[in-house]
Design a protein around this nucleic acid. Structure first.
Lengths: 146, 146
DNA sequence: ATCTATTCGTTGCGTTTGCAATTACTGCAC
DNA sequence: GTGCAGTAATTGCAAACGCAACGAATAGAT
């Protein structure tokens, strides 16, 4: 086992840990947000990303990157949220290919209701990860990403 | 903004970073493994997990946890790989509810072919993440999870 | 021995996803 | 202006997912 092989194994192990932690948090968030507010994690992520652009608009592509989704998935996700009246599409004047999205007051309200749940469950999930030796290291790293 | 709110925001930000890094790596791995070996990331993960149990068997539930998948998804994934002749189901004698899975020689061979691709792309993806300020911190943390 | 609670894997079903192809628009070259 | 490569968003389609319901097997209580 050379030092290069060691580096490879460290990366592979780190990647497995990342996947495990990601899965743990996502599953817990999904269940909580879905049952308490009828929102999936990506849906919440989109609403939250839009709210963080306070007063400013977001294009579909930015939204896709923010939610770590493909363009097509983003299109349908926005359509779904628009049908529920949580956001609106706004045609872009200067570049008529682009489409802006903006939260409606209904979207802001639902987000305000869901945010405490999200934050609480995220805290719980990270605490749970801290208790698992395999995940404790990475979970701790989350807190120190100032 | 109280100190408690700060902690909440740090966690939320860390979670967004985790999702972004996970998405970046997964997408790159998916494309490379799919085009060069006809394997998805989860399929590779299962084969790799089985190979790491060298000589030992793995139950469906363990496999599900290793791949961060639901039981049902694991059942179908194993079926898919079994149909391709990459692994075999082995009925468990002492607990007849349980089912063991084991790599075939074909599975071992395909894994041996795909592993260099996986390791190379993982290294590239982490290097790419290191170049993105937003992700550099967490990407670096992956290396120091000894 | 039997009854009950629990666990393990599988299946039906509806939903979401990504890829590839398509339409619409921009902007640069000439 | 006209043509043409590049970009933005959308849609058809097949594949994969999770949840809930199910059947089969085990373990503990009486």
């Amino acid at each position: 086992m050379s030092v290069a092989d060691d580096a490879i194994e460290v990366r592979a192990h780190g990647w497995r840990t990342l996947v495990a932690l990601h899965g743990l948090i996502e599953t817990k968030l999904e269940r909580a947000l879905q049952s308490e507010h009828g929102l999936s994690v990506v849906e919440y992520t989109v609403l939250e990303a839009l709210s963080r652009q306070d007063g400013w608009h977001m294009r579909m592509q930015q939204l896709a990157r923010a939610a770590a989704l493909s363009s097509s998935a983003t299109t349908r996700l926005v359509t779904r949220l628009e049908d529920r009246g949580l956001l609106t599409r706004i045609l872009c004047m200067d570049d008529r290919r682009g489409i802006y999205t903006e939260l409606t007051t209904g979207g802001e309200r639902l987000l305000a209701e869901a945010r405490p749940t999200h934050d609480r469950v995220l805290e719980e999930a990270l605490a749970e990860a801290d208790a698992i030796p395999e995940l404790a290291g990475l979970a701790g790293a989350i807190h120190s990403l100032a």
